[in-house]
């Protein structure tokens, strides 16, 4: 099963990954990182299809995808 990993320290909470995930796997979380950003979280891991769109659109290279 594909898996998305978010490097929480690199995330700036822009929301692009959430917007472009075709399966609504991702969401903006309620925890903040050391810079004060509410980093993205994997809300529905079981829905991930490993399309990498989140990784591609993420400006900050905060997302890695496994399959």
């Amino acid at each position: 099963m594909p898996k998305v990993e978010i490097r929480s320290e690199s995330c700036k909470s822009c929301g692009y990954c959430v917007k472009f995930c075709p399966k609504q796997v991702l969401a903006i979380g309620d925890k903040v990182n050391s810079k004060g950003y509410e980093y993205a979280k994997v809300a529905k891991p079981e829905a991930c299809i490993g399309c990498k769109m989140c990784g591609v659109i993420c400006p900050d290279a905060a997302i890695e995808v496994y399959k």
Binding site: K12, P59, D60
Partner: peptide, 13 residues
Amino acid sequence: VVSGFCPGCMHST
């Protein structure tokens, strides 16, 4: 390193 660019800035991309 975390990039110095603002959130959502496509420079980083």
